[in-house]
């Protein structure tokens, strides 16, 4: 079973995404801030990371940086909050984010992206 790590401070969204991805048979871990996210990257061996940009203590960009250092092959999907600046998006891609999903988003669509990235 593949592991997916979700770093998102809005618990409702993370549990919803978890619900959706559980349906597809993934093992999903959710954490609500950047520091716990980094711990989880170290400890839970995720096969894919979904991270929000605006999270407590760290931001999504730092998470990408860190994850790429730990294991450059893990794909990362960046969830962006409303009104995010373009520069952040560019930076995320430059650092090696695999995909970018702006909020509001469609969880089914997100699930498809997850599947595609994990199967590659």
């Amino acid at each position: 079973m593949k592991n997916v790590l979700i770093i998102e401070d809005d618990k409702l969204i993370s549990s919803l995404v978890r619900f959706r991805l559980n349906k597809d048979g993934y093992n999903v871990t959710t954490v609500e801030d950047g520091l716990k996210g980094m711990d989880a990257i170290d400890n839970s061996n995720p096969d894919l990371i979904i991270t929000d940009v605006m999270i407590p203590f760290k931001n999504g960009i730092e998470i990408i940086n860190y994850s790429k250092k730990v294991n450059p092959n893990v794909p990362i999907i960046v969830l962006s909050s409303l009104g995010e600046e373009e520069s952040t998006v560019m930076e995320a891609f430059n650092l090696g984010a695999s995909d970018f999903v702006p909020k509001p988003f469609n969880p089914n669509e997100l699930a498809i992206r997850v599947q595609r990235l994990i199967n590659n």
Partner: peptide
């Protein structure tokens, strides 16, 4: 509250 919060973050049919 929860419905509104989801509504803000979801798209299309979910709304």
């Amino acid at each position: 509250q929860e419905i509104i919060s989801l509504n803000k973050n979801m798209k299309g049919e979910f709304k």
